[in-house]
Computed example of a mutant assay.
Amino acid sequence: MSLAQALGYKESDRLLLVNADDYGLNHSVNIAAQALLESGDISSATLMTPCAWAREAALWSAERPNLDVGIHFTFTSEWGPYKWGPVTTNADVSSLVTKEGYFHADSKSFEEHADGEQVKIELINQVERAIALGMQPSHADNHMGSLYGLQTGKHFMSQVLDVCAAYGLPFRLPRFVTTEPGQVAPPHVEEQARQVAALADSKGVVILDYLVGLPFRLEENETYDGFKSSMKALLSGLQPGVTELIIHPSVANEELNVFHLEPAKRVMEYDIFRDEEIKRHLKDEGVIMIRWSDLRKLQQERAGQGQ
């Protein structure tokens, strides 16, 4: 049985999750993510618990358990002026940080230095931090793809899937890696994706069929209209099954501009699913928007955990 059928849809249906990554990064991102969640224009957001504005985001989400917010497992800190580090205070996680005490700036450095047991401790504590703030996480995913081993081949998916199984959380992992436009996972990881998908199945963790997105950086001479055309093409090309589309929305203000290298693209990503033309296009294409809580319910039912 396909994932779509397990969720109560036809195998031929195209089901879409739209997730706002980087929730909690700063106040500008929180404003955008919260507006999109409340309007129903996106399916979910995922919280960066180590970041300075995570508490505001988590407390807001705790008051709205009907809106899907998951955990954006964070192990990198990529901006020069604005840094963050582990939430763990009760164990040694020194392999996860630089000499300054912050996470490494890129996935390659993280993969080269990180100890698997320390990664698992931090994974658990990031979930526990959100729960302590009153959240009921709907799912989990990963900031900058640091846990997938895309840079060196050293991945941490066993630890991730153990934690997701323990907390009843589905995880952002594409079962199928293709060469179609918009695929986030590079084609060279197809075999690894197949192996990790089998591992997820063995641990009872529900994963995606496909994972897509448009370039996170502003393309040369890119305009909003051009971005919208690209998004429409991406939506038209969705495959049958369950696909997640990643965006990173934010409102425009000085707070975003002071550290972020791509503020214009972040604002485009805030506007795109509020755009009536995109809403009509989704309807015309017959794409069905679903929620991560649908996948969480399926996972928990399969595990006999209830809701």
Results as ranks from 00 to 15, higher is better:
Q183C: 13
H139I: 12
L261H: 15
F171E: 02
S230C: 10
D201C: 02
E219Q: 15
Q159W: 03
N253M: 02
E255Q: 14
G153D: 10
N257R: 13
H188A: 13
R266F: 00
Q192L: 11
G204I: 09
F259Y: 15
A166S: 14
E191K: 15
D275F: 01
Q192C: 04
S250G: 13
L211F: 10
L150T: 07
Q195G: 08
D201L: 05
E220G: 09
F273K: 00
F216H: 14
G213W: 07
L234Q: 13
A198Q: 12
T243I: 08
I272H: 07
A140K: 01
L211M: 14
F227R: 10
D271Q: 15
Q183G: 04
D141N: 12
F259L: 09
V196T: 11
G213D: 13
F273L: 02
G241E: 07
F259H: 14
V163I: 06
R175T: 12
I247E: 00
M144Q: 13
E219M: 13
L161Y: 01
M268G: 04
E191H: 12
L169E: 07
A166N: 11
L150F: 13
A140H: 03
A252H: 14
E254I: 14
N257V: 11
L208A: 08
E219N: 13
S202N: 11
E277C: 10
G204N: 04
D225G: 15
K279W: 02
A185R: 03
G237Q: 08
A166D: 14
G168M: 01
S158Q: 14
L282T: 00
H281F: 00
L208Q: 11
A252D: 15
E277G: 13
L261T: 12
A165C: 02
D284Y: 00
D141E: 09
H188G: 06
R280T: 13
A185E: 08
F176Q: 09
H248V: 06
L211G: 04
Q159F: 02
T243F: 02
T178Q: 01
